[in-house]
């Protein structure tokens, strides 16, 4: 089913209850195609609501998306614009987005690449981020893994492990109540490592970045590679 192409700054909104959401951004595509009828909700483009059925949507590259499912899996392939996604229990997988804001109560979150900010919040699921700019990631009990961060990091975990690999000299604020924290820095980066943000007032001028890492009961390792 063809829908009007999103106007500049328009956002494609997709929702289901238990149905999975599968979005593919196709090079050269100019319109939005959906496997289900859009709602007549007065929005342009209209909201695509799949209910309990699986929804497949094809969009032009660079399209901004706001998507959400209760228990269905969310998969976004191709190069898209700003993505906001939310699920209760389904896994969220995003291949390549300009920026990401994704949250899940119990499903796993996987972001392979985003040039901009990656904000990911999981209540109990694991969070894995490949290459990104700034990262703002939270998990209640799941592990956080940031593989190639090229911006500021804020990572918070209540009881899981945090692993961060920095691609450059950027500030890190990592905190877990009971898990282990591992931060890997490029060899040439001089970092000031402190347990509290307020402690960075002394000595930061001589360093390339500040790493604030604190764990209530776990070990903290900051190393160069």
């Amino acid at each position: 089913m063809g829908l009007p192409a999103p106007a500049e700054a328009a956002v494609v909104r997709i929702t289901t209850t238990s149905g999975a959401i599968h979005v593919v951004a196709e090079p050269g595509r100019t319109d939005v195609w959906s496997s289900t009828d859009p709602l007549d909700d007065g929005r342009l483009p209209p909201t695509i609501d799949g209910g309990s059925s699986r929804v497949r949507v094809l969009v032009p590259e660079g399209t901004d998306l706001v998507v959400g499912a209760t228990s269905g899996r969310v998969t976004i392939e191709g190069r898209v614009g700003a993505v906001s996604a939310m699920t209760t229990s389904g896994k969220v997988s995003i291949a390549d987005a300009e920026s990401v804001d994704v949250r899940s109560r119990s499903g796993r979150i996987e972001v392979k690449r985003t040039a901009g900010t990656c904000r990911a919040i999981a209540t109990s699921g694991r969070v894995e981020v490949g290459r990104c700019g700034d990262a703002d990631v939270t998990s209640g009990s799941g592990r956080i893994s940031l593989e190639d961060v090229n911006g500021r990091v804020r990572a918070h975990c209540s009881s899981g492990r945090i692993e961060i690999s920095m691609g450059g000299a950027h500030d890190v604020d990592a905190e877990t109540v009971s898990g282990r924290i591992t931060v890997s820095l490029p060899a040439a980066v001089r970092a000031l490592v402190v347990p509290l943000p307020g402690d960075a007032a002394v000595g930061a001028d001589d360093c390339d970045c500040v790493v604030v890492a604190r764990s209530g009961s776990g070990r903290v390792d900051v190393s160069h590679r």
Binding site: T15, V66, V67, G68, T70, S84, A85, M86, T88, D101
Partner: peptide, 8 residues
């Protein structure tokens, strides 16, 4: 405000 998605 920035959109973050729908919930039920």
């Amino acid at each position: 405000f920035r959109p973050v998605g729908p919930t039920r």
